[in-house]
């Protein structure tokens, strides 16, 4: 018990003094996850709008596949990316394994289905409101998609935040493809796993505080966005 108490005290100290390792790892975590978030949103949001606006033959199948992919175990995604990027794999020549880029790729694969599914839910609702009006105004498909993305931006931000929350707390996949290399690919979650394994509770707890704070912030933002949306503002 006193070990834990001491660990807690040290952890708080590490956070207030902005310990160098702690800051470095936090920044890397943010860098990897925000990059993944931008890439994933750029793919998932237009896809979600397209699925809402356009009736094509495979639409239902695509939606079903997206929903199924949401349940993909991250560590399996890590394995697939690992095999693809490993020296003998199809993309081995790029030499990306154990780099932050590999971690970004894995996170993108994990959160694209999540963001696309959530975004599609709300854009489909918006489209059923707008359908007659936009058809009547003789809009092109591009204009329809742009209009939905713009007028649905609050809901889309919520979808993106959910993606961020999932990616920043993910450990299995990035451990596999990033390798948790000090000063290179070590991020919050993998560092916590390592420090805990070593029995270094102070550092593990300090990293945990930062992670919890980030997760709380994201969820508060989601909650707040949801409320303003219900209030009819945007």
């Amino acid at each position: 018990m006193s070990d834990l108490w001491l660990g807690l005290q040290q952890a708080v100290w590490l956070v207030i003094t902005l310990n160098g390792d702690l800051v470095e790892i936090t920044l890397r975590s943010l860098q990897v996850t925000l990059t993944a978030l931008v890439v994933a949103s750029a793919l998932a949001l237009p896809l979600a709008a397209l699925l809402a606006v356009r009736r094509f033959r495979w639409r239902r199948s695509v939606i079903a596949v997206l929903n199924a992919l949401m349940g993909l175990p991250p560590v399996v995604v890590g394995l697939i990316v690992y095999v693809t990027l490993s020296r003998s794999g199809p993309l081995g020549v790029l030499g990306l394994l154990f780099t932050p880029t590999a971690m970004v790729i894995a996170q993108v694969i994990i959160i694209v289905p999540l963001i696309a599914s959530i975004a599609h839910q709300s854009l489909r609702e918006l489209w059923s409101d707008y359908h007659d009006l936009l058809i009547s105004m003789n809009t092109t498909q591009r204009q329809r998609i742009a209009t939905l993305l713009w007028d649905g931006r609050r809901a889309l931000l919520t979808a993106a935040l959910a993606g961020f929350g999932r990616a920043i707390g993910e450990v299995g996949a990035i451990m596999v493809v990033g390798g948790n290399i000090d000063h290179a690919t070590r991020v919050l979650t993998t560092a916590i796993a390592l420090e805990t394994g070593k029995g270094e509770f102070a550092m593990a707890l300090a990293l945990g505080f930062v992670l919890i704070a980030l997760a709380l912030l994201v969820n508060l933002a989601i909650h707040w966005l949801g409320q303003t949306e219900r209030g009819g503002r945007w």
């Binding site: 918006l126 409101d129 707008y130 007659d132 009006l133 209009t147 007028d151 649905g152 945007w234």
Partner: peptide
Amino acid sequence: FQTPIMMRR
């Protein structure tokens, strides 16, 4: 339309 469609703007 019979019920006006307002855009969220």
